[in-house]
C-alpha cells in the first residue's frame, strides 16, 4: 500500500508545518555485561502540527521507547529528536505525557492533580482552580473533584491523567498505550471522548498502541513498526472523514479495509521478528 495513494485528510486546512522531527534515532540497551539489544534502528519521522499520529507495532518493537525519546525522558544512543527545530534534551511542558499506568499523584485529589501543572507553571491559584474545574468537567468527572485517585476506577484515573496533562497546555500530547490497561467497554468510551476533546483544539498527538482498530479509528497517520530491531515499516495516511463516529465508521468499507490491510502487515511484522 503506497502511502502516496492517500491524500491528506480533508479537515486540515492550513498548510501543515513540522512540529516534531525524529532524525535517524537509534537506541541500544545494555541487557547484560556483554550483550546489547538494538531497540530502535535509524528511525526518521516527521510529525506535522495538529496531526493525530499513532505508532503501531508488536510488543517489543520499541514504540514506547520512541515516545520516551520525544518526551525527553530517555536520550537516544544515536540520532536526535527535535521539537520545532530545537533539539530535545529533556522533558518539558511543551510535551505532555499520558501513561498507561496513569502515574497520578496519589496524595493529591482529582482537583489537586489537575491543578499541579498550572500551579507549577506559575498560574495563580484561583485561576488554576477555575481552569482545572472546567477540564475535569470536560473529561466527564464533574462531582469527583475531591476524590483521591485510589477511590477511582481505571477509566476515571486515565481521564484525570488526561486532564492533568491538558491543564498545562502542552503543544504535543504523548500518549503511551493510554487505554491499554482498561477493559474493552471503558476503552471504547475513552477513545470516543478523546476524539471529541481532540477535535475541539486539534493538538498534535503522538499515540502509541498495539491495537489496530484503535489506531485507525483515531489517527490521521499510522506509523507501522516492525520488531527486532525496531524499524518503521510503513507510514499509512488514514483518509477517513472527521468528525468520526464509531457507529458510522465501523460500517464504512474504507475503515474496514484499513483495519484488514494493517492487520495483515502487523502479522507480517511479527513473523519477521523474533518468535513470540
Amino acid at each position: 500500500m503506497p502511502s502516496s495513494e492517500w491524500v491528506r485528510p480533508l479537515t486540515s486546512q492550513k498548510p501543515a508545518s513540522a512540529i516534531l522531527e525524529i532524525d535517524r534515532v537509534s537506541q541500544v540497551f545494555q541487557t547484560s555485561a556483554r550483550k546489547e539489544h538494538l531497540a530502535l534502528s535509524e528511525i526518521s519521522l516527521t510529525i506535522e502540527e495538529g496531526a493525530f499520529v499513532s505508532i503501531l507495532g508488536p510488543s517489543g518493537c520499541g514504540k514506547s521507547t520512541l515516545l520516551y525519546i520525544v518526551g525527553g525522558f530517555v536520550s537516544p544512543t544515536r540520532g536526535a529528536a527535535k521539537m520545532k527545530g530545537q533539539a530535545i534534551t529533556g522533558p518539558g511542558p511543551d510535551r505532555g505525557p499520558v501513561f498507561q499506568e496513569f502515574a497520578l499523584f496519589p496524595w493529591k485529589t482529582v482537583l489537586g492533580n489537575v491543578m499541579y501543572g498550572p500551579r507549577q507553571r506559575g498560574v495563580r491559584a484561583t485561576e488554576a482552580e477555575a481552569q482545572s474545574r472546567a477540564l475535569i468537567e470536560m473529561v466527564g468527572l464533574k462531582g469527583y473533584e475531591n476524590f483521591y485517585p485510589k477511590e477511582l476506577s481505571g477509566g476515571m484515573k486515565q481521564r484525570v491523567a488526561l486532564a492533568r496533562t491538558l491543564a498545562y497546555h502542552p503543544q504535543v500530547l504523548l500518549m503511551d498505550e493510554p487505554f491499554g490497561a482498561l477493559d474493552a467497554h471503558t476503552r471504547t468510551r475513552l477513545q470516543n471522548d478523546l476524539l471529541n476533546i481532540w477535535e475541539r483544539d486539534r493538538k498534535t498527538v503522538l499515540f502509541v498502541t498495539h491495537s489496530v482498530d484503535e489506531a485507525v479509528f483515531l489517527s490521521d497517520k499510522v506509523v507501522m513498526m516492525s520488531n527486532s530491531p525496531g524499524r518503521i515499516r510503513e507510514v499509512i495516511a488514514i483518509d477517513l472523514p472527521r468528525p468520526r463516529r464509531r457507529n458510522e465508521l465501523l460500517l464504512d468499507p474504507r475503515y474496514q479495509k484499513y483495519v484488514v490491510d494493517i492487520e495483515r502487515m502487523f502479522d507480517e511484522s511479527e513473523e519477521a521478528g523474533a518468535p513470540l
Partner: peptide, 11 residues
C-alpha cells in the same frame, strides 16, 4: 512515570 510526569510539568 510519576517522576516523568512531574519533570514534564517543569519540576
Amino acid at each position: 512515570k510519576m517522576l516523568w510526569s512531574g519533570a514534564a510539568m517543569g519540576l
